[in-house]
């Protein structure tokens, strides 16, 4: 009688493990950013690309428009690929675009912007990558949408594509 109970228990346990592992096969294995991100810290300050002045990131956020932070570098090839989307966004929509230049040579980054066009309302410099860590970035390019309460509402890891672009437009129109 007692053995029967143990028997059923073990069989059920094995089946449960089986189903969990089966579901586990479908899970994403790589890092995906958390969805519930808190308010941005208001102590993050960076230098402006052209003037070299220190600016607090939070001072740049507008309350009547959506804010878009784009982390980029001139040495990063995918950044070139997503550049036209950023230019389109800036030209056609009311959005506050802030560029953060990640671990770059300043001359190269200025040349990048003069060659390909400057989509940013403001370009800030993060020469050692530490500010990007404070924002929760893992590399370049990354793009964050920030609402009027200084909260990150969406993170795009990697270059923006057509879907992301439309996604951003829908959010602007809302």
């Amino acid at each position: 009688m007692k053995n029967n109970k143990i028997f059923y228990f073990i069989v059920i346990l094995i089946m449960a493990i089986f189903f969990v592992l089966l579901l586990g096969l479908k899970e994403e294995k790589n890092y995906i950013p958390q969805s519930d991100i808190k308010k941005l810290n208001n102590s993050i300050s960076l230098k402006e690309l052209y003037s070299g002045k220190n600016i607090f990131l939070n001072d740049l956020f507008l309350t009547n428009e959506l804010n878009l932070i784009n982390i980029w570098a001139s040495w990063c090839l995918p950044c070139k690929a997503e550049h036209p989307y950023l230019i389109n966004l800036n030209e056609k929509f009311d959005i506050n675009l802030i560029g953060i230049n990640y671990k770059d040579n300043l001359d190269n980054s200025k040349k990048f912007l003069s060659d390909l066009g400057n989509p940013y309302d403001e370009v800030l410099v993060d020469s050692d990558g530490t500010k990007s860590i404070e924002l929760g970035a893992i590399g370049v390019p990354e793009t964050y949408l920030i609402n009027n309460e200084n909260k990150i509402i969406k993170k795009f890891i990697g270059p923006l594509d057509q879907d992301d672009y439309e996604n951003i437009i829908n959010l602007i129109k809302k």
Partner: peptide, 21 residues
């Protein structure tokens, strides 16, 4: 099956995982 996150990444094919499991 590639269910683990590890430095030793091998061919990841879920159908294989289902079979072995």
């Amino acid at each position: 099956s590639g269910i683990l996150n590890s430095i030793h990444t091998f061919a990841n094919d879920p159908s294989r995982g289902v079979f072995i499991l």
